[in-house]
Design a protein around this nucleic acid. Structure first.
Length: 442
RNA sequence: GUGGUUGUAGCUCAGUUGGUUAGAGCGCCUGAUUGUGGUUCAGGAGGUCGUGGGUUCGAAACCCAUCUUCCACCCCA
């Protein structure tokens, strides 16, 4: 058997973990600065909690867990349905478990409840570039407030987080009510989802592609002609707002959407926010504002997205609890930062020094030196075998350990240790009492 | 789920129309070198050719299945 990771999963080396922890710690600080509380939920849920929450397509992509024991016991045939032999499933996203948690603890939570959550999720999708079967989601959501100030705050959360990451972005904003208005004034209000799914692909397949997709979804040419204004782009946000006010003037919901857009825009301050009336996002539980973030200097899909969903907890029986939230795409953010060389070069994944195993007689002194430095808060490693120096140097080099600590009879007599910097080859004798302080500053 | 693509040493890859014992570079191990690595030189180990069937006198190569990689679609982060 050849050892390998399961399809669509990855191992993360020390260096990769260091980078991921860096981004997550920046996000965590931003979340907490904006008043969000952490939440963690189990990696698997009862199957019924997840099934039917992501559409038919989603059900297919949920990793299901076989019943314990005789899993065929409840099977009604030799080719049983998933729900007969599986009763649990791996978390597919963080939003549905969050909704479950809110409903389950509705009485206890102080509303509005703001939480952030950074945990892996699993999807039985076919992997491709930047898409995996196991990946992290970093979400911040707030439930229990319909105030548009929440949207404004999320825009500023995005701004603060990406500023801290030194990754310039553009936040695109639209509103589901505007899209509903477009559909309404074009007489296709009953096919809003099909319309938005097609429109969302505009930047990818162009006007012609969207028209073709609408045709294949049995929209008439006349209807498509009426929807065409949705596919144009505007030079300024003022222009697009003015256009929408005129176009959607006969649609109550459309005008409501325009007002919501305007409110967020008016209070966004200097956030890098633009209106994009072609932004649709496939997710059909969004009901109000929708957001998407893309990096300015890198050709990459979105590095974040989110929106308002008025009745997410309704699926668990708790109605009239409005929610709005955003997600950060950890893997893509990392790809951007790597491409732009914006990751701090101080990320530590290796000990600062390696104490050499000089020879068997001095092993005790070597280990004591190691223990002394560890107590002083320095990350050090002690080479466990009396190997050749070349081997110990190579080991340190390979692990990225910057300093080698060498000592012998002469040094011990003088109370010093030779500190050799591997990168430069420079070496100096440092007294025991100064050693911890010396290493701490390097 | 659909269509294409990929798999040979630890890593990156050669391997001719099917024909002796499957190669290279890097890495690894040993030595030149008993307290100062990275250079150099000499030697060495390491491969069920993804897996399972099939065709053939003969398969790393051709066929089928399966797993995996990457890409596109669906969908999505």
């Amino acid at each position: 058997m050849k050892p390998r990771v399961a399809k669509g999963t990855r191992d993360f080396s020390a260096q990769e973990v260091a980078k991921r922890h860096y981004v997550m710690s920046v996000l965590r600080k931003a979340f907490e600065r904006f008043g969000y509380s952490p939440l963690e939920t189990p990696s698997f849920e009862n199957l019924e909690t997840l099934m039917g929450k992501y559409g038919e397509e989603g059900d297919r992509l949920i990793f299901k867990i076989l019943r314990s024991g005789d899993f065929m016991k409840h099977a009604e045939s030799d080719v049983p349905k998933a729900s007969e032999i599986a009763d649990k499933a791996l978390r597919y996203d963080l939003t549905v478990p969050f909704a479950r948690y809110v409903v389950q603890n509705a009485g206890q939570l102080a509303m509005p409840y703001k939480r952030y959550q950074m945990q892996p999720v699993w999807r039985a999708d076919n992997p491709q570039k930047g898409r995996f079967r196991e990946f992290y989601q970093c979400d911040a959501d707030v439930v229990g407030s319909q105030s548009l100030w929440q949207e404004v705050e999320l825009v500023h959360l995005y701004q603060a987080a990406f500023d801290a990451l030194n990754l310039p972005v553009t936040i695109r904003l639209n509103n589901r009510k505007v899209l509903a208005g477009m559909a309404e004034v074009s007489g296709v209000g009953d096919r809003l989802v099909a319309f938005t799914v097609a429109l969302d692909k505009l930047d990818k397949i162009g006007v012609e592609g969207v028209v073709n997709e609408l045709l294949s979804k049995e929209f008439t040419l006349e209807e498509i002609e009426k929807l065409k204004p949705a596919m144009q782009s505007f030079a300024t946000t003022n222009e697009s707002i003015a256009f929408l006010r005129t176009w959607l003037s006969d649609s109550e919901i459309g005008i409501k959407g325009v007002e919501e857009l305007t409110f967020v825009l008016d209070h966004a301050g200097n956030a890098p926010l633009i209106i994009d009336i072609t932004l649709a996002r496939g997710l059909n539980y969004y009901t109000g504002c929708i957001l998407e973030v893309s990096a300015n200097e890198v050709q990459m899909g979105s590095v974040g997205g989110g929106g308002r969903y008025d009745d997410l907890t309704g699926i668990f029986g708790l109605h009239d609890v409005s929610g709005v939230g955003v997600s950060f795409g950890l893997d893509r953010i990392l790809l951007c930062l790597e491409e732009l060389h914006r990751l701090p070069n101080t990320l530590e994944s290796a000990p600062k020094a390696l104490v050499f195993h000089m020879d068997t007689d001095q092993a005790k002194e070597g280990y004591q030196l190691t223990a002394y430095l560890r107590k002083a808060g320095i990350s050090v490693d002690f080479y466990p075998e009396p190997a050749k120096w070349k081997k110990q140097f190579d080991f340190a080099e390979k692990r990225g350990i910057p300093f080698a600590l060498l000592y012998g009879e002469e040094e011990m007599k003088q109370g010093v240790v030779q500190v050799k910097e591997l990168r430069t080859g420079d070496q100096e004798a440092i007294r025991y009492v100064d050693l911890a302080a010396h290493l701490a500053t390097r």
